Amino acid sequence: MTNPKIGIIVGSTRPSRIGPSIADWLQKQLKTPHLDVDVIDLAQIDLPLLDEIAMPSDGHYELEHTKNWSRLIQGYQGFVLLFPQYNWGYPAPLKNALDCLYSEWRGKPVSMVSYGGRGGFQAALALSLVLRGLKFHRLSTNIEISLKPADLDSHGHFKAPNQALAPYEFNVQQLSAEFQHVLTD
């Protein structure tokens, strides 16, 4: 029997983003002998803005990039959406990636890991409405990472990611346990 697969979707595509370093750390923390975890970077996926003719809820995809995105997402049993807060909202590439599909998300467990100067609460609040609409199974463990200027270099990247993210290890362990409980029971 294969382990359930969780996809960490990196929701920011900015060239100077800190998301990939958080995703790498999350992946190491979430992975267990009973849970496989991959990073799905939207900057590498490079989805165009909603360019399918039919509504995603129809499930009729004509464009190859949408079919590929659908196949990729169908290979996962759950997701962590990792995103920064931009002006109290979440990044447009993440919204686009979610909106390109519909039934592929239905019923799958999801957690939000937001980050920003104050943790990204407003962005997570806004995204939670979208997750309801897409019929995700929203997990109770969601993490807000507050970025502290002392932990960042002049380019906005972590000086020492493991040290800066250490306060969130317990929360990630709780998330891992919740995924295991939901996906193996």
Rank of each mutant, 00 (worst) to 15 (best):
N3K: 15
P4S: 09
I6K: 07
I6P: 08
I6A: 06
I6L: 13
G7S: 10
I9Y: 06
I9Q: 02
I9L: 08
V10G: 01
G11I: 12
S12H: 05
P15T: 15
S16W: 12
I22L: 02
I22M: 01
D24N: 14
L26V: 11
Q27N: 05
Q29T: 03
K31P: 00
T32H: 10
T32K: 13
T32Q: 12
L35S: 01
D38K: 09
I45C: 01
E52F: 10
D58L: 15
G59A: 08
H60Y: 09
H60W: 08
Y61E: 01
N68H: 10
N68Q: 14
W69Y: 04
W69M: 02
R71H: 13
R71N: 12
L72W: 02
Q74C: 09
Q77D: 11
F79T: 03
F79K: 03
L82A: 03
L82T: 02
W88E: 08
Y90D: 07
P91K: 10
D99A: 01
L101I: 04
Y102G: 00
Y102L: 04
E104I: 04
K108F: 11
V110D: 03
S111G: 12
S114Q: 10
S114W: 08
G116C: 12
G116I: 11
G117A: 13
A124Q: 15
L129W: 10
V130R: 00
V130K: 00
R132H: 12
G133K: 05
K135T: 11
N142Q: 14
I143D: 06
G156H: 06
H157F: 10
F158I: 09
A164K: 09
L165F: 06
Q173G: 02
Q173I: 07
L175T: 05
E178I: 08
F179V: 08
H181S: 15
D185Q: 14
